[in-house]
Structures are given as C-alpha cells and as structure tokens.
C-alpha cells in the first residue's frame, strides 16, 4: 500500500473541483478503499458539486476502482452534482468499454473539455 499521505491532488477553479492522482498505481486494489473514502468525503462537503477526475499518469485500474467510481458518481448525484472523467489512457478506456461503464460515466479527452461540459447550475438535472 502506498504510504504517501498526499494521494490526491485537489484544486479548485471557480465552482469546479479537479481531482488528480499523485501516483500511477493509486487505483490498484490495495489502495482503492482509502482513495474511495477520500473522494466520498470530498463530495460530502460540497453542495451541487462539479467534480472532474483526471486519470493523467494512471496506468492501471482494478475492478474495485470501477466500483469506487460508481460509489462516487452516486454520491455526486445525491448532492445534485455533476461528475466528469478525463485524460484516460486508451488501455484503461478499454476497461470502461468492456464493462460498458463508458455509457454510465461522462468521459472527455481533456480537463478543458470536461470543464466545458458542465451544465449551468440552474439547468442541471442528473449527472
């Protein structure tokens, strides 16, 4: 398990929260539970959160990580928020396609495109 305390890099730009991973193995099976707890706690503290999770530098993803992302997505929706994923390596994107989770999540090539995809607060309904 990674011992580094700063596993997530979280930055804010206006009302958008950007989450980046600080280690390429951050989403391995052994680390995912703790990362999931941190992501859920982050969303819990937001009202109508607009969250972007960037996978830049991530080269591996377990099925447990997919489960955690679904939990985070549900939490965001429960808070009337929106979640976007971006910068996903083609091999990892294949994991989303095989599991058909590319239909559940809104995935964009870049942070910029993910940011531009957010709907205004007064118009948003689900994700």
């Amino acid at each position: 398990m990674l011992q580094d305390a700063a596993r997530l890099k979280i930055t804010r730009d206006d009302d958008v929260v950007l989450v980046e991973f600080t280690h390429r193995k951050i989403l391995d099976e052994a680390n995912i539970a703790e990362i999931g707890d941190q992501l859920v706690a982050l969303v819990e503290n937001e009202h109508r959160p607009k969250v972007i999770i960037s996978f830049a530098g991530v080269d591996h993803l377990s099925s447990a990580a997919l489960g955690t992302l679904i939990t985070v997505n549900n939490k965001v929706r429960n808070h009337d928020g929106q979640l976007r994923l971006c910068n996903i390596h083609p091999q990892i994107f294949e994991v989303f396609v095989i599991t058909k989770l590319n239909k559940l999540f809104r995935i964009y090539p870049t942070i910029k495109e993910a940011k531009e995809s957010f709907e205004p607060l007064n118009k948003q309904s689900v994700i």
């Binding site: 099925s63 994991v95 599991t99 058909k100």
Partner: peptide, 21 residues
C-alpha cells in the same frame, strides 16, 4: 452479467468479466 442495465451500477462483480476480456 454486470453489463446489463439492472447491474450496471453495481459496485462489484466485474473482475471475472475483465479477466475473460
């Protein structure tokens, strides 16, 4: 089958699907 609509939001059950893929 975790890819079916009724299971798509399940938080587990995709490991064997990925192994086979």
């Amino acid at each position: 089958d975790p890819t079916l609509d009724q299971h798509i939001e399940s938080t587990h059950g995709r490991g064997i699907l990925l192994m086979r893929a």
